[in-house]
Design a protein around this nucleic acid. Sequence first.
DNA 1: TGTACATCAGTGAACGCGCGTTCACTGATGTAC
DNA 2: TGTACATCAGTGAACGCGCGTTCACTGATGTAC
Lengths: 191, 191
Amino acid sequence: MRVSKAQAQANREHIVETASVVFRERGFDGVGVADLMAAAGFTHGGFYKHFGSKADLMAEASANSLAQSLASAEALSVKDFIDVYVSRDHRDGRATGCTMAALCGDAARQSDDLKSAFAEGIERTLQTLGEKYPTGPDAAPGEARVKMIDLLARAVGAIMLSRACPDDSALADEILAVCHAQMTASLSVQS
Amino acid sequence: MRVSKAQAQANREHIVETASVVFRERGFDGVGVADLMAAAGFTHGGFYKHFGSKADLMAEASANSLAQSLASAEALSVKDFIDVYVSRDHRDGRATGCTMAALCGDAARQSDDLKSAFAEGIERTLQTLGEKYPTGPDAAPGEARVKMIDLLARAVGAIMLSRACPDDSALADEILAVCHAQMTASLSVQS
DNA sequence: TGTACATCAGTGAACGCGCGTTCACTGATGTAC
DNA sequence: TGTACATCAGTGAACGCGCGTTCACTGATGTAC
């Protein structure tokens, strides 16, 4: 049952897309190659026609979803980014949310290949949002980047701590509400 | 080869202790029951004389290491906490570092039992360090807690993002340095 | 205090199962003439 | 354009392996008399 080159390429992209969602939902170790292929609508045997190993797909799926999140962040102001990111919807929507928040704990234990994908995702996020960071007129050069690094760490930390609490826990919501307020407030304080 | 009650209890504690280190190093899914028991100096068969399941040990080991980190934080000022926490030593010493930073990504996908251990660890950390947070003389009640929640999210986020970057990456060090400076600076700004 | 027996922490073989990966096979697609 | 053949994406059985868990067994500890 050979398939056209265009179809094969589309299928490959569909597998990467599916993997980027399922990995975020269940973690790299929480999904098998067979699960992944079934979720994409295929049988597991064809996997190695597209990828050298599961680890290769992990890196590619991460790069894919990091790039995707970045694309959606491009349309946002820093304030809007905070609203979207530090929210209950984002916390509860791991599968379609930020890859950093969903997988950076796992990434820390993976190959440098995978970590490079994360570093690039982080760097691009810093650049994209850093350009829009509202610094004062007499801000030092690099001020926006510094503020943006701090902001990203706060955002990722807030989501991850909130997700580590039991569902419907008051603490989980408190963390989000407090961090959202503090981050928003820090935006209007120019240094 | 029965062993005295006191010895059995000591052995159990040793297994929990070992597990809390190895889980932080390799993640919950990265270590098997047999590995764990071998690391503690036993064979795997005896595991179920002490624990109902691997998941039970995961929760107990997490609670144990969270309590331990808390104990060492009790001696620190908030400024010292930032120095110790947001550091390269901490980033590179996952096995003996903060359990939140090492495992909160994994915890998000586990049972509410495990998450409860994390929520309690977070709550106690907030209380212990919150009491020492240097707010101004006319600070609103609850101000210290709010600041401490934000500070903890920043600290955890900074370590986790830094760990997700390749070893010896400039970005990994930049994230730590920037967040350390920003957090320290925010300590001296009273609201 | 000494003896006889029950308990149970720890051992190591074994269990079924799911994992990542390989492979012979199929048949539509792509290519050479 | 039509025919013959090579290619290769996708299938599904099979591989060895390590996982969490169970179990019969051992022998020192704990207990009853």
